[in-house]
């Protein structure tokens, strides 16, 4: 831990995956040789069709799945040396469906479950829970029954219950599914604030606009392999379109319109507007 302060943020590898293959017992080859490095403090989006291996990949990061072949290192340590309970202190994974994890009758104990499993107690626990509830905008719902909340707030609750574990790496599986405008804006703010704290964020998403506007790097998967990776400008730029099309993804409108108007790579809405303004002046 002491070394972290001396090394520049963004250089230390948070995740290092080499030659990762995963074959499920019934024979499906869900991952077919994945190499991936994610630096500390990076915000990375993983995109691709259902069944392309995104969820299988992230489940290796906290040891829920073990490689058939290849290696996974988390914060410099091989993941296979650690139990899931120990990896949970390093990698917080938020599942897609909140109803597959909510069990407490009040919001507060639900959020406290993760950190107390990690041995966080007393004032530290209270602080972690308060901070997580504030981050997702549920501070005034701490005493509510989770099942009285609507789906999108239950989803934010499931995110809070992982944020409260204060893991250096946070993985979100489709955090914007079923969310409305405010929910999506909330998730965007959470990712930004995690990244600002120097924590590493990895998200799986089908929403290309959300991906382009929120993440520093995009990893495109197809049939268990990484077929494209780069900044949103590279991943959604015109040269990458054939690869995207091959996996049924469409770049966000800003990127498409920018290319058609000859403005170059404009993955985000602000980049598009700036390029347009520069072109007209």
């Amino acid at each position: 831990m002491s070394g972290a302060a001396t090394r520049p943020i963004g250089r230390e590898p948070a995740i290092r995956v080499r030659g990762l293959v995963h074959v499920f017992p019934e024979g499906t080859r869900a991952l077919d040789g994945v190499d991936l490095d994610i630096a500390t403090g990076e915000a990375v989006a993983i995109v691709g069709q259902n069944g392309s291996g995104k969820s299988t990949l992230v489940r290796h990061l906290n040891g829920l799945l073990r490689p058939t072949e290849g290696t996974v290192e988390v914060l410099g340590e091989p993941a296979d040396r650690l139990r899931v309970a120990a990896l949970a202190a390093r990698v917080g994974l938020v599942f897609q469906d909140p109803d597959r994890q909510i069990f407490a009758r009040r919001v507060r104990p639900e959020v406290a479950f993760g950190p107390s499993n990690l041995g966080i107690r007393g004032k530290d626990l209270d602080a972690a829970v308060d901070e997580a509830l504030a981050a997702v905008g549920l501070s005034d719902q701490a005493g509510a029954n989770p099942y009285d909340l609507g789906y999108s707030r239950r989803k934010l609750l499931s995110i809070a219950s992982v944020l409260a574990m204060r893991t250096p790496i946070v993985v979100l599986d489709e955090p914007t599914t079923g969310q409305d405008l405010r929910g999506i804006a909330r998730v965007q703010a959470i990712v930004a604030s995690l990244a600002a704290d120097g924590r590493t964020v990895i998200a799986i998403s089908h929403d290309m606009r959300f991906v382009a506007e929120t993440f520093g790097r995009v990893v495109v998967m197809r049939a268990g392999r990484v077929v494209l990776e780069g900044t949103p400008a590279a991943a959604f730029g015109e040269p990458a379109w054939p690869v995207l099309t091959s996996t049924y993804l469409e770049p966000p409108l800003a990127a498409r319109a920018g290319a058609r108007l000859g403005l170059g790579a404009t993955p985000t809405e602000s980049a598009f507007v700036e390029a347009l303004a520069a072109g007209r002046s």
Binding site: A85, F95, I102, V162, M165
Partner: peptide, 27 residues
């Protein structure tokens, strides 16, 4: 899988596993 990701120990002692009963059965 979701609860193990939240640090629930399903591989540890009997006591640790007993603690995990509600979080598994309620959902």
């Amino acid at each position: 899988a979701a609860q193990r990701s939240r640090g629930l120990d399903t591989e540890g002692s009997v006591l640790a596993r007993a603690r995990g009963f509600l979080p598994l059965i309620v959902p």
